[in-house]
């Protein structure tokens, strides 16, 4: 079999093999599209953000904050949320470093938490396979965004408004699970305390709370030997 035929087969395998996992992106995309439509965004803006940023949590912050908060605060928050891509990228480099720079640059554009998990399960495939996986997930997210943007306007606000908090709660639980269970009461307690105090202070409450909490978690982990 020729190299290009093998590459096409691997691409198709990646595209179809990750289909069920990629379907998970559909409701996330729908939620973002619906929230953006409710916030008055046009379809082009929603789709551009899903193509470029391709990170639902950060996009949710944009929908929630733009128009109410300073654009600098919103952009800073979005970039802070996306900082998790640093360690993911480092870990993914172990899989992708055998490919050419062009392939690595293209694969990086579609690297998300869930996509990395899919890549990581099969670390010895050819580059075509990973392109298939990445495209499958991106397409699902884009179709979801499109559907959400189209139907979002007709849904009552009460039926879409909790999509974003639900996403953040789910991701908070996922991330807290990486800490030792015995530390969780302290970590959650510190989180509630820091968030409440920063809200009472008012100015730049969320960014200040996030910075304080990251510092607190780093210090707690270091002192208790979990970092």
């Amino acid at each position: 079999m020729s190299t290009s035929a093998t590459s096409r087969r691997e691409f198709t395998e990646g595209l179809l093999g990750s289909f069920s996992a990629a379907l998970g992106y559909l409701p996330v995309g729908i939620s973002f599209g619906a929230l953006a439509a409710h916030a008055g965004w046009d379809l082009a803006s929603s789709m551009a953000m899903s193509v470029g940023v391709y990170a639902a949590a950060a996009q949710g912050v944009a929908v929630d904050g733009l128009g109410h908060q300073s654009v600098i605060v919103v952009i800073t928050l979005m970039l802070l949320i996306n900082l998790r891509h640093f360690p993911i990228s480092l870990a993914a480099a172990r899989i992708f470093n055998r490919f050419s720079l062009g392939h690595r640059l293209l694969l990086a554009a579609g690297l998300t938490d869930e996509v990395f998990a899919l890549d990581h399960r099969q670390p010895d495939r050819t580059v075509g396979f990973y392109h298939g996986v990445h495209l499958s997930c991106l397409l699902s997210f884009l179709v979801g965004t499109l559907l959400g943007a189209l139907v979002g306007r007709v849904l009552p606000t009460q039926w879409v408004v909790f999509a974003l908090p639900a996403l953040f709660i789910a991701l908070a639980v996922d991330n807290l699970r990486t800490y030792p269970p015995s530390r969780l009461p302290v970590l959650i307690g510190v989180g509630v305390l820091v968030t409440t105090l920063s809200r009472m202070a008012g100015v730049l409450a969320a960014p200040v709370a996030i910075a304080l909490l990251i510092t607190a978690y780093a210090l707690l982990s270091r002192e208790r030997g979990t970092g």
């Binding site: 908090p165 809200r199 709370a209 607190a216 780093a218 982990s221």
Partner: peptide, 20 residues
């Protein structure tokens, strides 16, 4: 080291904002 704590710090704050 602190980069490892960014996701938890960010999502805990945003989740608590979502509840209130």
């Amino acid at each position: 080291g602190w980069v490892r704590h960014v996701p938890a710090g960010v999502f805990v704050v945003l989740a608590l904002y979502g509840l209130a």
